[in-house]
């Protein structure tokens, strides 16, 4: 169980490449060679010779960079919480989207949005808080519904997740029909299109993601022990209930923040931890950080695709992750009996 440097370097390299692509590619291509100059000029408060009318720097600093950083945080949060839920429920199909947490967060966020649209400082606090409460309710209801004795069978978890998901999505839709003007915007948001621009959402997600992801990173070893069941974990000295509570709160917190600012983006939390498992094994001390890094990279690449496939129009990124993720889900479901990497 050594944390070797190679997987870390590979995944970080992948993330850097994705970050760069995400910054330069879009409706306007920013030549990578000018990037450094744009950044140093902006730091000196001058305009760059490559950018006489300032359009590159506006696109870079007001659109691309904040969007890229936001999706980086969201991707890391979704993949990190996905692997944490999988470890917590000892279930290969646990994913913030499939177990209803994301929809619960969405419902909470929509409820808050109908009261307060997230552009005031208060709104920036209210929406993630409401999303967090909705998500926490969803995960508690799902784990209670799915529990049989001391275990949570895969099928039960998915069924409970689907039903909670359907219920909270219905509530969200109902509220959105009632709210007039901003309807289309909210629908796009809910499908995982980050329509918000500027640095506001980034600053909104950052504290939640920082706290939640740090907590999850510290829980790798207890999650490893939990794979042998609650009873053995306790006999090995792990305070099981305490660990469970911290994992649920931390994973749900980052999911809620991601949903509140980027909408419901499914399957990242399922796909990424599985790929990391296949490549580098299931040790949670390694799986959690690598999932976060690769999740951020995957979401950035997906977003580039969402921006360019039918440019200049954008596809909500959640649609693309679902298009890729749903077949993957079926594949995992089919494999979950025989797999040896889980």
């Amino acid at each position: 169980m050594k944390i070797t440097a190679r997987p870390l370097l590979i995944s970080l390299g992948y993330l850097c490449a994705a970050f760069l692509i995400s910054i330069v590619v879009g409706s306007v291509f920013i030549p990578p060679a000018t990037l450094l100059d744009l950044i140093t000029s902006a730091l000196r408060g001058e305009s760059s010779p490559f950018d006489p009318n300032g359009s590159f720097s506006t696109i870079l600093f007001q659109l691309r960079l904040p969007r890229t950083v936001l999706l980086l945080l969201v991707g890391a949060s979704l993949a990190g919480s996905g692997s944490a839920y999988q470890g917590l429920f000892r279930n290969p199909l646990a994913d913030p989207f499939l177990i209803g947490v994301a929809s619960g967060a969405g419902m909470g966020a929509v409820i808050a949005m109908t009261i307060q649209w997230p552009y005031t400082p208060l709104g920036l606090l209210a929406v993630p808080l409401a999303a967090f409460i909705g998500a926490l309710l969803a995960v508690l209801v799902v784990s209670q519904l799915a529990r049989v004795g001391k275990t949570i069978p895969t099928t039960n978890l998915i069924l409970a997740g689907v039903s909670v998901s359907a219920f909270s999505s219905a509530v969200s839709s109902l509220l959105m029909i009632n709210s007039s003007g901003e309807l289309r915007r909210a629908i796009v948001w809910l499908m995982g299109g980050s329509t918000m621009t500027g640095w506001g959402p980034v600053l909104g997600v950052l504290p939640y993601a920082a706290i939640g992801l740090t907590a999850l990173l510290l829980l790798g070893h207890p999650l490893n022990v939990l794979q042998f069941g609650d009873e053995q974990a306790q006999q090995l000295g792990v305070p099981v209930q305490k660990v469970r509570r911290i994992v649920i709160v931390a994973a749900t917190l980052v999911t809620a923040a991601a949903v509140a600012f980027a909408g419901v983006i499914g399957f990242v939390g399922l796909v990424v931890p599985h790929i990391v498992r296949i490549l580098w094994g299931g040790d949670y001390r390694r799986l959690l950080p690598l999932s976060m890094i690769c999740g951020a990279g995957l979401l950035l690449i997906t977003d580039v695709a969402a921006r360019t496939i039918i440019a200049p129009q954008e596809i909500p990124v959640g649609i693309i992750t679902a298009l890729m993720g749903a077949p993957f889900f079926l594949w995992v479901l089919k494999r979950s009996k025989s797999q040896n990497y889980w």
């Binding site: 794979q227 042998f228 000295g237 040896n340």
Partner: peptide, 17 residues
């Protein structure tokens, strides 16, 4: 038992206390 653990990893968990 969780099949993906190696023997050494599983035994290492005995050091958890």
């Amino acid at each position: 038992l969780p099949p993906a653990f190696t023997v050494r990893e599983a035994v290492t968990l005995g050091r958890t206390p």
